[in-house]
């Protein structure tokens, strides 16, 4: 494990836990896209099918369990919690699942490393993760401002993506035969999606004002 990978995992973990703890503490999910959160829960559920069949390390297993538990908890809070669910603005969170999920299923079926159930599901989770943030970004654009919660959340997710790319570069040069085209390309697409957001995030941070995304 290299430092980029560890830092990437930690920012990823922080993004999910910060979101969960804040929803739990302030009893509000205003500005959070339930659709993005549900897509992430699906990402973890389909990617970690190997959790009971392949043991990699205690670290690996524990992290998988935390990601599964926290992502499903967030979805539960937004959908089921009697106070939190009232702050969910369903009318603004309008991105259609089919536009995201169907292309990912289609791509995973035709572009994968091996045509087995587990492998196709794993590939699907990579494609889905790359675009799962879209409903959240659309919601941000629509409400045209970002509070600390969503700002920190998207920032931490972006940091995780950037660190994972550094991790892949590091592993490519230090480990023999470390070539994984599918996660690399999906990961780069995912990181590019954040690039646009980052521009506005830093711009607003520099000017020390509330973030306003263009219409």
């Amino acid at each position: 494990m290299n430092i980029f990978r560890l830092a990437g995992d930690m920012t990823h973990l922080a993004s999910v836990l910060v979101l969960l703890l804040k929803i739990h503490t302030i009893k509000s999910c205003a500005g959070i896209s339930l659709k993005t959160q549900e897509l992430y829960a699906i990402v973890f559920a389909t990617r970690y099918l190997d959790i009971f069949t392949d043991f990699i390390s205690l670290y690996n297993t524990i992290m998988k369990l935390i990601f599964l538990g926290s992502s499903f908890s967030i979805v539960w809070y937004i959908r089921q919690h009697k106070i939190v669910r009232r702050s969910y603005d369903k009318d603004q969170d309008t991105f259609r699942y089919v536009f995201i999920v169907l292309p990912c299923i289609f791509l995973a079926l035709i572009i994968n490393e091996k045509f087995t159930f587990k492998e196709v599901m794993w590939t699907f989770s990579l494609y889905l993760e790359a675009v799962a943030i879209l409903p959240q970004l659309v919601l941000l654009q629509r409400t045209r401002n970002i509070d600390n919660l969503t700002g920190q959340y998207v920032f931490l997710l972006g940091a995780y993506r950037a660190l994972y790319i550094l991790n892949w570069i590091y592993r490519y040069f230090t480990e023999p035969h470390y070539i994984h085209w599918i996660p690399w390309i999906a990961g780069i697409v995912q990181t590019l999606l954040y690039g646009d957001f980052f521009y506005y995030y830093f711009h607003s941070w520099k000017n020390n004002k509330k973030l306003q995304l263009p219409a």
């Binding site: 995992d9 190997d50 392949d54 990699i56 690996n60 998988k64 990601f67 490393e113 994972y164 991790n167």
Partner: peptide
């Protein structure tokens, strides 16, 4: 054909 190593990333 060599089996690929298990996926160790999250």
């Amino acid at each position: 054909e060599v089996e690929p190593p298990p996926k160790d990333e999250l």
